[in-house]
């Protein structure tokens, strides 16, 4: 299988600080890959490089075979990669339906239709209902986003990203702020949604090792800007040095 997302010898410096140093990772079609590492390991920098937000100091970033260094969020969405953020991102004054519709409009290339009535666009409406249904938001289509519960906001955030019909989706700590009891349910919804939506690969940034262990095909651990490990879950969790570095001694389970 060829890599759908790939970095080749990527380094990123901010002034004198080396955030990433010679990182080569790849995500293939059909994979669920988690990226883990302690704070300051370079996860955020890697995410920003993978999503075309930053330009690497050295090396290249490929998405579906083309270099995406610094192409920006809009172009990225257009090419088929969606992302969500650690802190929940919503449009407070837009309804659930409008939020999803914003993404559907981009995906169906209708944004420049200045004078057409959105409300009577059947194709957009059908897709909004479909996406809302997958995430269990179909009962709240007309609610303003700011009035949703924290969990619903999270779902909406992810649902709108899925509405872009992406090939790859990058989830930046999707379970932060969600209670432990709900975490598995949320990730399960995301995986089911990904299947239904035809997503080819999922990249998950996550602190919760139980989730990482339960769903990943492969785990990439970063430490001090370098790739510490790139292994399937079994050998990954069998290596005490990796566990020590990534999780530290505070691991209780």
């Amino acid at each position: 299988m060829t890599a759908i997302v790939e970095t080749k010898n990527v380094s990123k410096r901010f002034g004198d600080f080396r955030a990433l140093d010679d990182v080569s990772v790849a995500v293939r079609e059909g994979e669920f890959v988690s990226i883990v590492g302690p704070n300051g390991a370079g996860k955020t920098t890697l995410v920003n490089l993978l999503t075309g937000l930053l330009i690497p100091s050295n090396g290249q970033v490929f998405f579906k075979g083309t270099d995406i260094a610094g192409i920006g969020a809009v172009a990225l969405a257009k090419r088929g990669m969606a992302r969500t953020f650690q802190l929940v991102q919503i449009f407070p004054q837009l309804t659930v339906a409008e939020t999803i519709a914003a993404a559907v409009v981009s995906q169906q290339d209708k944004a420049w239709r200045l004078f057409s009535k959105l409300a009577s666009d059947g194709a957009v409406r059908a897709r909004v209902r479909e996406i809302a249904g997958i995430f269990g938001l179909d009962g709240r289509l007309k609610s303003e986003s700011r009035l949703l519960s924290q969990g619903e906001k999270k779902l909406l955030d992810v649902a709108s990203a899925f509405a872009l019909n992406p090939e790859v989706i990058l989830l930046d700590e999707p379970t932060s702020g969600v209670s432990t009891a709900e975490k598995h349910g949320l990730v399960q919804i995301l995986i089911d949604a990904a299947k239904k939506a035809g997503v080819k690969a999922i990249i998950l940034i996550e602190h919760d090792m139980d989730l990482v262990a339960a769903y990943s095909h492969r785990i990439i651990a970063l430490s001090e800007g370098k790739v510490l490990a790139d292994l399937p879950p079994k050998p990954f969790f069998a290596d005490p040095v990796i566990i020590e570095t990534v999780i530290g001694r505070r691991r209780s389970t």
């Binding site: 999503t51 920006g72 969020a73 809009v74 990225l76 969405a77 257009k78 969606a82 992302r83 953020f85 991102q89 919503i90 449009f91 407070p92 004054q93 837009l94 409008e98 939020t99 519709a101 914003a102 993404a103 409009v105 981009s106 995906q107 209708k110 944004a111 420049w112 239709r113 200045l114 004078f115 057409s116 009535k117 959105l118 409300a119 666009d121 957009v124 955030d157 709108s160 990203a161 509405a163 872009l164």
Partner: peptide, 24 residues
């Protein structure tokens, strides 16, 4: 009330999120 208008409201609500949803 057009798709264009929706994107305007989206970007004024949250420009960063809007960009990742393909709003120019």
């Amino acid at each position: 009330h057009s798709p264009f208008g929706l994107h305007l409201r989206a970007l004024s609500n949250n420009a960063q999120k809007a960009e990742y949803l393909g709003v120019r």
